[in-house]
Write a protein that binds this DNA or RNA. Structure first.
Lengths: 226, 226
DNA sequence: ACCCTTTGTGAAGAACTTGTAAAATGAAGT
DNA sequence: ACTTCATTTTACAAGTTCTTCACAAAGGGT
């Protein structure tokens, strides 16, 4: 498990405790002390789950949740000190996946986080160490790809692109996202490069290339065909 | 919504209260007062979700959860009066999907139930966070729009306009606001451009185009029709 | 009711975005 | 240095989307 968790909590002690628990459970942990920092970390990292306190300096948890939900459906667990249960309702409306009231047992929070991560894996078609969708299988440890149970050989770039798209099945990935994911943060290069690779990838996928949809002026999206 | 919910709770008053809330929310409700009855009802009905109290006569909640999980992965929410948090951990281990401690706000329980049911839907369908009003649904991560549950395809500009209007349901959006939102701050161009796109968008929305009202000399407004 | 302003409409071409093919460049191994 | 393969660039094609324009229709103020 190398899932990176982002803990957004302004109180140092609480954050440290949580961090310890998650590190011990084998996750990697990123931290943010206020709303602005949180969004920055969110944008610059590939995260698996977010733990979000509501009472924060600069931007409150609601706002952050709303902003994140515009571009991602990453699991979010919200924390609150208040016992006011209307908060919980608002939290769910804004798209939080779970809601834990303080004081909480860190082990419970950990259990809830694990459950969400597990759900997500299942939803994305990750079974053990492969990822499957629409007749395409990616075996992650061996870095091989099968289409209709026949292995096809992809270059590094093609593999990375396909993996990223399939990890985010059903979600639009912008060209920028693809570029930063595959080439790194400040890649300067021709705009057509990405198209070339996409074409090569699609050719290799044969019939199944229809899984990768072009979203004009935005990016690409992997969709399971029905 | 015709999802049948099974409420397993021995205290009549609590069960009745819950039942009312769920009935009002449009669900159908089945009841069980003890463990044996619960299993019987479970086996004889096609359920969508189970709410399961732990302290029960005859068979306790743990046992029931374990038994059900042998044959089904129906969403289960466990209830407990105890504040002992180890219970929660055990609950998750046994495969419960959520865990609520008494006393609870019935609305919160309802919200959590809805979330689980919604997740279930998603597994078999479209992904993600969405925005709905008046028969129009925008699935934000997948960037798709449904009118009466049928997907329509919008261009970038049309999508941005609709999203902005629906995000501000009931509020008048000025032409300037629309322009800066969709085209950016210093857009110089023909005044009629916006009308053209609005026309195309309305055409694609069909009957539902009435949701977008023209406010003469000001802008546009999205309104849910009743 | 009138005039003036604002918005809706249809069609055409401009502008943009992506797809495609082929050539140039770069990297790795022999 | 040569071969091979992946990557990037280039130039162009194809298709879509956007913008503009002229005119029609509708709305607002007096």
């Amino acid at each position: 498990m190398i899932d990176p968790i982002l803990i957004i909590e302004d109180e140092d002690i609480l954050r440290e405790i949580l961090k310890d628990y998650f590190l011990n459970a084998g996750y990697s942990v990123l931290e943010a002390k206020d709303g602005e920092e949180a969004l920055k970390v969110f944008q610059e990292n590939e995260l698996s789950l977010i733990i979000l306190d509501i009472m924060l300096p600069k931007l409150d948890g609601w706002t952050i949740c709303r902003r994140i939900r515009k571009t991602s459906n990453i699991p979010i667990i919200m924390l609150t000190a208040r016992t006011d249960e209307d908060d919980t309702l608002l939290g769910f409306e804004l798209g939080a996946d779970d809601y834990v009231t303080k004081p909480y047992n860190p082990l419970v929070l950990l259990a809830r986080a694990k459950r969400l991560l597990h759900q997500r894996e299942q939803k994305n078609g990750v079974v053990g160490d492969y990822l499957e969708s629409g007749g395409i299988k990616i075996y992650i440890p061996s870095r091989t790809v099968q289409v209709n149970n026949e292995e096809i050989s992809l270059t590094h770039t093609e593999y990375e692109m396909l993996l990223y798209l399939m990890e985010n099945k059903g979600i639009v990935i912008t060209r920028e996202q693809l570029i930063t994911k595959v080439w790194g943060y400040e890649h300067i290069g021709d705009d057509r490069t990405i198209n070339s690779h996409m074409r090569n990838l699609r050719n290799k996928l044969g019939d199944h290339s229809t899984c990768i949809k072009t979203i004009v002026r935005t990016g690409y999206k992997f969709e399971e065909i029905r």
